[in-house]
């Protein structure tokens, strides 16, 4: 199955490069560490054999799309990455004509750290679902929602309630939640890998980098770290496609998805909006309804 996908990816990448449909193809090559794949940029049709596909291709390649403003780009995407593209299109950051999307139905990416812990440097041949990244466990869109070429048969989508973790977390008391937040935030070293890995974090100047107004002190005092996490997440409200790239990028293994997933759940419950499905639909915070709920008002 995976071999077939790789073959299809290479064939299609070669074709679109040779026919000059695109100038560059963004995909994955073999990484230098166990359980790793690494983003690669192919411009020469003869290099397409570098492209691979396996269950370690966890990066969201949509983050690179804005790096090539005057090029036509071919990109290999999973379900979540394709939603990022849709979300970027909805925010008028991309032109559909400049992108050629090679979609790959995805069965979830495997967590490198969990595998290393369990198997060390010798990868097992078959891996169970419990080694999926947390972000992939609740995935609702394994198949790309937008593509020009699909490399394999679509996989079965999950039909379950997509936010069991958020519901579970909300059952905790206020102070328990605060304690959890403090513990997670205190690990932060402010390397901003979460921001940089996110396709939606494309601001020219991030709020932490401005010094007039100075929203936030530098340094690692706990409230500074917490405010960073609150605002980073809030800026994703109605925009986050739940790909989990932020959490996977974090070198300190901080859990951050629980923040954005709460917002996503609210966006779905309050505004009946699912992000990254329809590029024509205005993002939820860019519009309103006369009948939005307002029970929270005093």
């Amino acid at each position: 199955m995976a071999d077939k996908i790789v073959e299809n990816i290479r064939k299609e990448a070669k074709r679109i490069l040779e026919e000059k449909i695109v100038d560059i193809v963004i995909g994955f090559e073999k990484g230098t560490l166990p359980y790793t794949a690494s983003p690669v940029f192919i411009e020469n049709p003869d290099d397409v054999d570098k492209l691979i596909w396996n269950r370690y291709c966890h990066n969201n390649l949509a983050v690179y799309l804005r790096n090539f403003p005057d090029k036509k780009i071919g990109i290999i995407v999973k379900g979540c990455d394709s939603r990022s593209i849709v979300a970027l299109m909805a925010e008028k950051q991309l032109t559909r004509e400049n992108i050629y999307i090679i979609g790959v139905p995805c069965e979830g990416m495997l967590d490198k750290n969990k595998l290393l812990e369990e198997f060390g440097d010798n990868p097992p041949i078959e891996v169970k679902e419990e080694f999926l990244y947390p972000s992939c466990q609740y995935c609702e869109h394994k198949n790309p929602v937008i593509y020009d070429f699909l490399t394999g048969e679509p996989v079965q989508e999950k039909e379950e309630e997509p936010y069991p973790d958020v519901v579970e977390f909300e059952k905790k008391t206020l102070d328990e939640r605060w304690k959890y937040f403090q513990e997670e935030a205190s690990k932060c070293i402010r390397c901003y890998a979460c921001r940089q890995a996110c396709p939606m974090c494309y601001c020219e100047e991030c709020f932490v980098d401005t010094n007039s107004p100075k929203w936030l002190d530098p340094g690692i005092d706990l409230p500074d770290l917490q405010v960073w996490h609150i605002i980073r997440a809030y800026h994703q409200a109605g925009r986050c496609v739940d790909c989990g790239a932020c959490e996977r990028a974090c070198p300190m293994d901080i859990k951050i998805l629980w923040l954005t997933r709460k917002l996503n759940k609210d966006v779905r419950d309050l505004f009946e909006f699912e992000i990254g499905i329809d590029p024509e639909k205005v993002p939820p915070l860019g519009t309103f309804s006369l009948y939005d709920k307002e029970e929270f008002l005093i």
Binding site: S38, P39, V40, F41, V63, Y64, N67, I189, R190, C191, Y192, A193, R195, Q196, A197, D217, P218, A249, P251
Partner: peptide, 22 residues
Amino acid sequence: RKCITCGACTYLCPTCYCFDIQ
């Protein structure tokens, strides 16, 4: 090309010492 310009490498590096003063 593939670098996303986060600071993970430099912050974890044992010899990187750049700092800012505020």
